[in-house]
Design a protein around this nucleic acid. Structure first.
Lengths: 201, 201
DNA sequence: GCTTTTATTGAACGAATGTTCAATAATTAG
DNA sequence: CTAATTATTGAACATTCGTTCAATAAAAGC
């Protein structure tokens, strides 16, 4: 009984994510978004409210994909430590593969948005909290397996790994070298390899 | 033979650093800078060229302070590992103390500026390269002391520590908790403690 | 004093910003 | 076909952006 929407919302969102990801929130103009999505300003505003609304949708959409990827990699039949290793290897290859070196959209946003913007920051905080919890669960398994004896809690170790994600993401901005990143990952995972001394191949 | 400059350049620069630090480059307007520095637009432009020029001066000024701090902490009579420990402890207390949680101005900039802005990025790259070299030299000492046997090069370990700086800086944005940060630092430094297993207090 | 030189002022510039909205187009119900 | 409803268009809006510059002020040399 009315004119149907012409554009594909998901496709438009994907393109918007790309722009925000590369240019940041402040660095992105409506004109940029109009060019990237092919939509006119009016259509963008009727679909997403305003620039900020579209940004929220972009963040959420990005996180959905990210969560999916993390879930896939961390819930396999392999030993916990191997799953974590696989995750970080994937992070490394993704980082090196990306020719624009955009890093992680959410990490970028975390550093761009001032802390007094609680609406955005609490959302990001919750997102990374979920990631931390995913790691925690895998680390619980790891500890329960008995192959690793540390008096550290899985929460503590999970936070360390999340810190590692942040660090790798930023590091890739200055030195996008796969062997360098792999070496860093090796040292990160070394912390999880119990009952051994730190001489390794 | 002419009218003297009224403002104190260093003081103005310090105030400008504060604004860019908190709001980022894109997020900072000339109006913000006029208000913060007390200078009129014309004075800013005659002193620093343009917004970008002032931003460069801000980055350089910030790095000078940072380099000074790093140099002071890493060149003492204490054992190498203790100096590194001191550095990271300082990083933690600074992070937690900062009520605005601005993080590191340079790390923030690294994530804000797109990679295709070579002028800014190569500058940042060089700066973090210097930091990496400082760590490398201390790690050389550490390895030479014989208290640590690893087949890793000091360069490799230095990069790991720089990654740790990045990670901690970002982590503080989501969880500004001193005990959490300390735990992360503990795990970072664990990699440098050779000839021991990873059970520790 | 006057001249020269440079710093400061802040209004003004054009361009770009995020946003709105009347006009138009496309669909369905009757 | 007509009426009703909603999507799309893109010009226009008021702000704000970064930047400039003529007017003014302050110092030093003579």
């Amino acid at each position: 009984m009315a004119r149907p929407i012409e554009f594909n919302r998901e496709e438009v969102l994907r393109k918007a994510i790309g722009v925000f990801w590369q240019k940041g929130y402040s660095g992105t103009s409506i004109k940029n978004l109009v060019e990237a999505t092919g939509l006119q300003p009016g259509s963008i505003y009727s679909a997403f409210g305003d620039k900020r609304g579209l940004f929220f949708a972009a963040i959420d959409g990005y996180f959905e994909d990210m969560k999916c990827m993390i879930f896939t990699l961390l819930h396999t039949n392999q030993p916990p430590i191997v799953r974590i290793e696989t995750f970080f290897n994937r992070l490394v290859t993704d980082s090196v593969t990306d020719e624009h070196r955009k890093g992680c959209f959410l990490v970028n946003t975390l550093l761009e948005i001032p802390v007094d913007d609680q609406e955005i920051n609490s959302r990001l905080q919750a997102m990374f909290g979920e990631v931390e919890n995913e790691f925690r669960d895998v680390l619980k398994e790891h500890i329960a397996s008995g192959r690793f004896d540390s008096n550290q809690s899985p929460e503590e170790l999970a936070r360390f790994l999340v810190m590692g994600i942040y660090g790798l993401r930023v590091f890739n901005k200055t030195q996008p070298d796969i062997s360098v990143l792999k070496s860093i990952v090796n040292n990160l995972l070394f912390v999880l390899r119990g009952k051994s001394c730190n001489n390794r191949a």
